[in-house]
Design a binder for these strands. Sequence first.
DNA 1: CGACGTCAAGTATAA
DNA 2: TTATACTTGACGTCG
Length: 320
Amino acid sequence: MTIIRFGYVAMSMNLQHASPSQTMTHKQFSGLKDEEAAIRKLERIAVSNIENCLRLLKHNVLHDIHFFRFSSKLIPLANHPDLAGWDFLTPLLPALGEIRSYLREHPMRVDFHPDHFVLLNSTDPQVMKNSLKTLRMHEGILDAMGIDPLHRCVLHVGGAHGDKEKAMEQFIHNWGLTPEGIQRMIMLENDDTVFSAFDALYLCEKLGVPLVFDLHHHMANEERDWTLDWTRVVATWKDSPLPLKMHISSPRSADDFKAHADYIDPHDFLGFLRQVEGSVDRIDCMIEAKQKDNALFKLMEELVQEEGVRRVDGSTIEIG
DNA sequence: CGACGTCAAGTATAA
DNA sequence: TTATACTTGACGTCG
């Protein structure tokens, strides 16, 4: 028997004017004459983004959703070199404190997926430095929200630069340059073109990092049968206080296989569920679909029609 | 108001 | 070496 909780990413299709990712581009910022005023504007945008996160958390509680990925665009230009001296965190502490209080009363699994330019396997020291800076920002936000940063940031392995083996060894090398506090935040995810689940498992096992298994990426990237190594995936979570986490999405079309569809095709996922059922007590399953929370609601309705699937609450099923 | 163009820290690929 | 695509949400502008 396995309990599966579904989560969704960053924004709701049901809340109006609740974007957690409002932004100001660097070009816009540079165009403003009064730099102090421009920074105050950035701070207003960031506070609004965090207030919208709180609205999203309340929306989640209202719909029995226990699993949510925050936007990683909460603080525009936080890590831009032109704003190196900006203390972006202090003005946000009151808003982050409200999230801390709310999450204390309504526990929910929350995490981040920093954007694709956060790379821990780059050979360019500047890219590595910026990546660590961005990860420290995530750590600061989590701390201010009162969340233990352990296993709260999903990353891909990074670029291959034409030599996958070498790029993986570079990851291991750079891991040694990564502060322990950042290391413990990280989970690794297989990608859809270069680093398969088996590549990622090599790194996860070597470095003691949980693997976030992305079923859609696996289908796009690998011929090999994932079930051969599923017990290895499960094992990467044995020292985590959090349930195994994975990602699901459906292909937009046969021709555009890698792109995410609006909703999840339940049959893409049901076969998987039937195979893993019983191998692990709990799975937290992040839905990456264009229709966000609506895709979650639709998938729930469809799955509970299926043989052997029982509804636990608005976002949770039990199978087996 | 809807349609369209612009922007984004890195990487991959084509020209 | 340089430019463009990738991806995707936000935002500004145009008609």
